[in-house]
């Protein structure tokens, strides 16, 4: 009987009673695998749970040594601080969240409006050097942000787009268009071109055929693609931090990062702000979980 590496490992702890272990080899191994998965899941999720826990702890307990895992007092004070200024009125963080909504939302709409027709054209028409064009488009997405930000900074300084929401919207759109085109091309490829051909035989123009017959079938794909673009823009940090400075314009990532530094850091507030920031992303990601592989590989891998 051949012994695999896994079996060799799994019989390790139960060596004292070899006969039953051998008979139950399959089950013993299965238990071990479940145990291993559980441990890995706990390790992967612990930082997230710890973040949530810290966000509802009183400051005393946040800095407790040794760390308190269960016996702490629950408070929602940090969440209040995220949205409300100590002097009353709106907090700088809540303004940043609003800015993030505007910037991510508008840039996503723009990227969709520009990207979907392009994806359709790449899928349906014989475009010259199509493959090269598509490769070029994806290459722009791989540019290191830090490298791009230097000339963008100089360019924006010339035209007055520094510390301006429009500047951020433009650069996020430019970064999401390649993704939208690649992702959407996959979805368009899945809709048979014959639908449009048949409609055109019935006297519709190509554009009408697209709008009336193909577009409705693309809606789920467009929604999924837009959600990913939204997440990318929402999470983006490098451009946001170098191209904006004032509280009125700054988006949430640099605003949250700005909470540290100085001599003391209110980690409870950082945790609460992080939870508020991450929650919509997780909800959205859950909604598009079917397309997650295509989404995170920028539309390159589809299953």
């Amino acid at each position: 009987m051949a012994v695999s590496v896994d079996e060799a490992v799994s019989t390790g702890p139960t060596r004292d009673h070899t006969p039953p272990a051998r008979r139950l080899g399959g089950r013993g191994r299965s238990v071990l695998e479940v145990a291993l998965l559980t441990v890995l899941a706990v390790v992967m999720l612990f930082p997230v749970l710890w973040m949530i826990e810290t966000s509802i702890k009183e400051n005393r307990d946040v800095y407790a040594i040794p760390a308190k895992f269960f016996d702490f007092k629950i408070t929602l004070e940090h969440y209040k601080d995220v949205f409300v200024d100590p002097d009353g009125g709106r907090s700088a963080l809540s303004v940043a969240f609003l800015n993030s909504v505007v910037v991510a939302g508008v840039s996503t709409v723009l990227a969709t409006v520009l990207g979907v027709p392009a994806a359709w054209a790449y899928s349906r028409f014989a475009v010259k050097a199509k493959k090269d064009q598509l490769f070029f488009i994806l290459s722009t997405r791989f540019m290191p942000p830090v490298v791009v930000v230097v000339p963008i900074f100089l360019m924006y300084r010339q035209v007055g787009l520094i510390d301006n929401k429009l500047g951020l919207i433009l650069i996020y759109t430019a970064f999401n268009v390649p993704f939208t085109i690649w992702m959407m091309k996959g979805f368009v490829d899945e809709v048979p071109a014959e639908y449009e051909d048949a409609a055109m035989l019935d006297g519709y123009t190509r554009l009408q055929a697209f709008r009336l017959f193909t577009l409705p079938l693309l809606v789920p794909g467009i929604a999924a693609t837009a959600v990913f673009a939204l997440i990318f823009s929402w999470n983006e940090f490098v451009f946001a931090t170098f191209l904006t400075s004032s509280d009125d314009v700054r988006t949430a990532p640099p605003a949250i990062a700005g909470l540290i530094g100085g001599t003391t850091t209110d980690w409870g507030l950082v945790a609460a702000a992080s939870v508020v920031f991450a929650l919509p992303v997780l909800v959205f990601a859950y909604l598009v979980r079917k397309h997650l592989i295509a989404g995170v590989t920028l539309g390159a891998v589809r299953r």
Binding site: P47, V48, I231, N235, I256, F277
Partner: peptide, 10 residues
């Protein structure tokens, strides 16, 4: 799915 900012800070 988390932002590098959140991950880094935490």
């Amino acid at each position: 799915m988390l932002s590098p900012v959140v991950v880094g800070l935490f």
